[in-house]
Amino acid sequence: MSEIKLTINGVTRTASAEPRTSLLDFIREHLGLTATHMGCEHGVCGACSVMLDGVPVRSCLMFAVQADGHDVMTAEGLRDADGAPGVIMDSFIEAHGMQCGYCTPGMMVATHALLSQSPDPTDDEIREAIGGNLCRCTGYAQIIEAIRIAAQRLRDAT
């Protein structure tokens, strides 16, 4: 077992895990943060997307021990301080940018990554940002609309 200390959603947490524990399983099973979802465990679906040191990555494609000493943000980090849905989350609600909600946290993490780099993204940039996140429910239309709403709101706020 290895002791892993990382910052997650701004909070420092420490827990032990075997080296073979994926960051995904660590976040879910050891830290009890369940917004990050397991879809394929081989790096294709994007349901497990998290921010690592400020960039989006797939948490199924790295081991928790590798995140020791690093900064992770999960979809939970997109909530407001009081736990209410943050701007990106609320935009997904407004546009009904989801159905079953399973890919949604990964989509929102991808959205956060996009909008932190590109506040007024083009359609191509939106597609590029969520191109590695599979959704089986929506056909992506309302997700794209949600991203546009979020971009507008975040621009309006600054």
Partner: peptide
């Protein structure tokens, strides 16, 4: 060694690769 792991980790998850020791270059 493990570099980015984007191919190695799935291969390990599928147990197609099973190193006894992983040396992390990250």
């Amino acid at each position: 060694v493990i570099a980015g792991g984007q191919t190695l980790v799935p291969m390990m998850a599928m147990r197609l690769a099973r190193p006894s020791c992983l040396v992390d270059l990250n």
